[in-house]
Design a binder for these strands. Structure first.
Length: 414
RNA sequence: GUGGGAAUAGCUCAGCUGGUUAGAGCACCGGAUUGUGGAUCCGGGGGUCGUGGGUUCAAGUCCCAUUUCCCACCCCA
């Protein structure tokens, strides 16, 4: 029996649900293309190094959440836990630094070995964008504007808010890290166990702690803003000015940090209160060091990723499947004619279906269940006259029309 | 990885302190209606009560283990 249930943290996406899934993905791709982003698809697995080196040796994603295995050739491979590293790798592999600035977007499954929860799966889907080669803050503005427009297009305006922070450049970040650690060291014994652990691995994350005791200590902690270099401060000013100029709402949150090592300067999250603890629906930032760290030419970058399942849970009106025209042959002699007709309609671009068996009532019932827009009844009586009955399934009105007129008349039910 | 809750029909759930053949609503199928769907009425199929052990004359109910889901931590999209 255990073998018949899907692997923990995975699930089947049934037809009704996949409509919403596709809606989220397609909206992302459509809006991204308005901003000049072109879709790229990278492999679902990469050499483990691609992720291990870029995400940070101490990040949880690398240390305990990757699906890593050895293939038959003895290569160490990993199912991608996110796609920025893969896209950066593709950027280098394909020599795309010749085409800067470069805007790429993607969609697809990601894999993390985590304890499942609502909005947190082991196989999940993301859509995302990456912009390479622009070092000015205007790139960050555009990328955030794209995120906002994408979420608006899904009808989520008002249900998500944008939170923004800066980590500064490498220099600022290091200086801040040192100041923060020395401040926190004084309270070491009063910190939660988790945070004492973080003190070594990723002290910035302590800012994000939910522990009551930690929060009190954090209140007195030095602020990132005071450690920014002039250049980093200017960058952040430019970013905020740009967002204000085009009317993108955001809220500064100096506790906002990212878990992955490659971020610098801009970090942002779009969050909702409607999904419990997994409220982050889209997040990203700037990663100027990533490409060079992987061995490529020094290339700045900025991007984000969004969780398709999480967004799917928020989206209220996903588009429905197209309503078919249902062919209802009546009497066995009509079946061959019905088959020919349904085929003809499909080739003309109509969603069309056949009632396979049963009496007229049963076939109409089935047509109703298929949410058919109209039914074409092919009974012996009217067929003898070279006619069919066209029934509007919404109003219940029906008329007998010559078979030759059918295609024309159907255009009303497009 | 840590802590807590849950698992009974396809779905949502009842099933009291253990006691004959485990129920309801919705859904599904059939009939009333062999040329007219959505409504109504009538009938029907469906369950190794997540799985494996144990206690007991007797376990859906109690105990242990295990799997999965949910909530929170952690992490992140």
């Amino acid at each position: 029996m255990p073998s018949l249930q899907p692997v923990r943290g995975t699930h089947d996406i049934l037809p009704e649900e996949i409509l919403r899934h596709r809606h989220v993905e397609q909206t992302a791709m459509d809006v991204a293309s308005l901003y000049g982003f072109a879709e790229i698809e990278t492999p679902i697995f990469e050499f483990t190094e691609v992720f291990a080196r870029t995400l940070g040796d101490t990040s949880d994603v690398v240390t305990k959440e990757m699906y890593t295995f050895e293939d038959r050739g003895g290569e160490r491979l990993t199912l991608r836990p996110e796609n920025t590293a893969g896209v950066a790798r593709a950027f280098i592999s394909n020599g795309l630094s010749q085409r800067l600035p470069l805007k790429l977007c993607y969609r697809g499954p990601m894999f993390r070995y985590e304890r499942p929860q609502k909005g947190r799966l082991r196989e999940f889907h993301q859509v995302g964008v990456e912009l390479f080669g622009v070092e000015q803050a205007v790139a960050d503005v555009e990328v955030i504007a794209l995120a906002a427009q994408f979420l608006d297009s899904l009808g989520l305006r008002g249900r998500v808010r944008c939170e923004l922070n800066t980590l500064g450049d490498m220099e600022s970040r290091q200086a801040y890290r040192d100041r923060l650690v020395s401040y926190l060291m004084d309270f070491r014994d009063r910190l939660s166990e988790d945070s004492r652990e973080r003190l070594e691995r990723n002290p910035l994350r302590i800012l994000d702690s939910k522990d009551e005791g930690d929060r009190g200590i954090i209140e007195g902690a030095p602020a990132m803003a005071d450690s920014l270099t002039d250049a980093a401060r200017k960058f952040f000013d430019d970013l905020r000015d740009g967002l204000n100029r085009i009317g993108i709402d955001f809220r500064l949150n100096d506790r906002l940090v990212r878990g992955l090592d490659y971020y610098c300067h801009t970090v942002f999250e779009f969050v909702t209160n409607d999904l419990g603890a997994q409220g982050t629906v889209l997040a990203g930032g700037r990663y100027d060091g990533l490409v060079s760290q992987m061995g490529g030419p020094k290339t700045p970058g900025v991007g984000w990723a969004a969780g398709v399942e999480r967004l799917g849970m928020l989206v209220e009106n996903a588009p429905a499947a197209p309503r078919p025209i249902c062919i209802v042959p009546f009497g066995s002699a009509m079946t061959a004619d019905a088959l020919a007709l349904v085929q003809q309609l499909r080739q003309k671009g109509y969603a069309a279906d056949l009632g396979y068996s049963g009496n007229l009532a049963k076939r109409l019932k089935r047509a109703n269940k298929m949410n058919a827009r109209a039914a074409v009844i092919m009974g012996e009586d009217e067929m003898a006259r070279g006619a069919v009955t066209l029934r509007d399934m919404d109003s219940g009105n029906q008329t007998e029309i010559p078979l030759d007129d059918l295609i024309d008349r159907l255009s009303a039910f497009r």
